[in-house]
Design a protein around this nucleic acid. Structure first.
Lengths: 181, 181
DNA sequence: CAAACATTTCGGAGATTCCAGAAATGTCTG
DNA sequence: CAGACATTTCTGGAATCTCCGAAATGTTTG
């Protein structure tokens, strides 16, 4: 009955956990995520505890973290007082949500700092020209990247999927691009 | 004289170090990178030690790590026996190299595992259908993503830059896309 | 509102990572 | 090949992160 009796499910879950640690996500969090992803029904925290052998408190923290990425959500189950949880099953959604949250946490603060620095540099003649230039370049680069991301993410999902399927062929549509492949 | 006497350079360096830790890169590594990025000349390890106050051994390890991402390289300086190091200054190059290496380390092993699992699932009737389906979906998704990435990265840099400048407007060129914005 | 149940927060033991200094290894020069 | 210099690998203490169990907090039900 338990999901993890199946060796392939278990292999997936274990690998997902390891992969998480490489990504800066802690193992418990990514294991909980893998379990929910494979489950065909909402699971209460207790059952996650049983299946993964983690402490209840740890599972609680993991669920909170996953919810902060919006890739797991609480659902109510008829006739059960306990919270149940399900993972986002649309992988494209999953990717965009993780990306959005990571940008928010990791990229945006950097852009903000670079904004400040650029401000200060404008009125500071004591800064060696090459330092000014390097910081300015970085600022422009990250801003451009951030803007690009915001634009792309605003596109409707089917458009994004279509773009991805297109792969390297998008380049053909560029004005002035080589027509031949 | 030392680069870090300039408060803005220092702010950049410190922030870059913190940002690194968030990214799973250790602080020493990202500080060394920031210093080299701001420097207008190749630096020998000793000078990095002096400017950052790190142990020599630590700097050595950091340089090795940065070289493994190919965003820092060793250069020879006329009349000095010591190795000197410079950072990649083209930020677009920097991004693509980091991305390539992270994909290689983090995504490729997952795809490889999913290949194996998909193989095994094909001959395994004991696996519950929904588990099979979830793993298969994940496999397809990550493969598609990986293929997309390889195609896009093969495009010439100017094309990539042009695409990025285009932002969300690429969607206009999609066959069957809404022409109006 | 009291009792039962569910969840979160807290504190600390264990594991991991970081990083300085020491030792070892590698490389050049005379 | 000896000695000077440069770099890397090793080792252990410090700092950080992980994750359990206990205590505190929140929530439902009679």
């Amino acid at each position: 009955m338990p999901l993890l009796d199946h060796p392939d499910a278990k292999a997936f879950l274990l690998h997902w956990g390891e992969m998480g640690t490489q990504w800066g996500v802690n193992r418990s969090v990514s294991q909980v995520h893998a379990l929910l992803y494979l489950s065909d029904r909402p699971l209460p925290a207790d059952e996650i505890v049983d299946q993964l052998g983690l402490a209840r408190s740890n599972v609680s923290t993991a669920l909170k973290e996953l919810q902060s990425y919006a890739i797991v959500r609480r659902v109510h189950v008829e006739g059960d007082r306990r919270d149940h949880f399900v993972a986002e099953l649309d992988l494209w959604e999953m990717l965009t949500r993780i990306t959005a949250e990571r940008k928010r946490r990791e990229i945006d603060p950097t852009i903000a700092l670079l904004n400040d620095l650029a401000q200060r540099l404008a009125n500071d003649d004591s800064c060696p020209p090459h330092v000014r230039e390097r910081i300015t370049r970085m600022h422009e680069f990250m801003s451009t990247l951030g803007n690009w991301y915001e634009q792309v993410r605003a596109l409707p999902k089917p458009t994004l999927v279509a773009l991805m399927k297109l792969g390297g062929k998008v380049a053909r549509f560029l004005p002035g691009a080589k027509k031949a492949e």
